[in-house]
């Protein structure tokens, strides 16, 4: 009714073809020119995959790894946080008390006797990583995970630790790694103190 409403629709007009355009020839020639330009440019956008690997961003969520601490022990304290957080139920931990008589383990209460992740069931959401209070489990940028059997794809503790060794060796640490600023549980307990640290201490407190 109002002028405003009727003016909202714009009708497009077909462009008028000239004599040459009606022959289609200029369009064909320009199309051919585009084809030839790309053909002689010699800059392929594809990548020769097995020889040239793609640059994976450091925040990629690939295969898991279990981190080691400075003494080479598994950093995991078997708190079951990741197993609880996991939406796909792919993590299975069996905890064991740390061998108290071994001086190597004297600062730890628990450690994972077994730690298995079913890589086929995992959905690579990264929630285990978020849940971990000691940054023991991390998702790496390893993307080419293959195997011949399902059994092979269930990673145990040794396999996960070896993923850590491999990724550390190649220098491809995940961007989320908090090296040095770890949660309180992973820090070496001050001598003479027993029991859990007081709340509010440290970054993750």
């Amino acid at each position: 009714m109002s002028n405003k409403k009727t003016k909202t629709v714009k009708w497009g007009e077909e462009p008028k073809l000239g004599m040459l355009d009606a022959l289609y020839l200029p369009a064909i020639v320009s199309g051919l020119a585009t084809a030839v330009r790309h053909a002689v440019s010699g800059k392929p956008t594809t990548r020769q995959y097995p020889e040239v690997e793609p640059e994976i961003p450091p925040n990629y969520r690939g295969v898991h790894r279990l981190n080691r601490d400075e003494q080479g022990r598994v950093k995991c304290v078997a708190c079951y946080m990741c197993q609880t957080a996991c939406p796909a139920n792919c993590i299975e931990i069996i905890a064991a008390p740390a061998p108290k008589d071994d001086p190597h383990w004297k600062d730890r209460d628990k450690y994972p006797a077994t730690f298995t992740i079913d890589e086929l069931r995992c959905i690579y959401c990264g929630m285990c990583e978020e849940a971990c209070p000691v940054d023991a489990i991390e998702l790496t940028s390893v993307y080419d995970l293959t195997g011949l059997t399902r059994k092979e794809m269930v990673f145990d503790k040794e396999k996960l630790l070896s993923v850590f060794d491999e990724t550390v060796k190649t220098g491809k640490d995940p961007v989320r790694t908090n090296r040095g600023t770890l949660g309180p549980a992973s820090e070496e307990a001050p001598t003479g103190r027993q029991g859990p640290p007081p709340p509010g201490r440290g970054k993750h407190g």
Binding site: A35, H38, A39, V40, G42, P44, T45, T46, Q48
Partner: peptide, 10 residues
Amino acid sequence: KLAAYVQDRV
């Protein structure tokens, strides 16, 4: 091969 070059492939 020609198709690949036109489409910026190898």
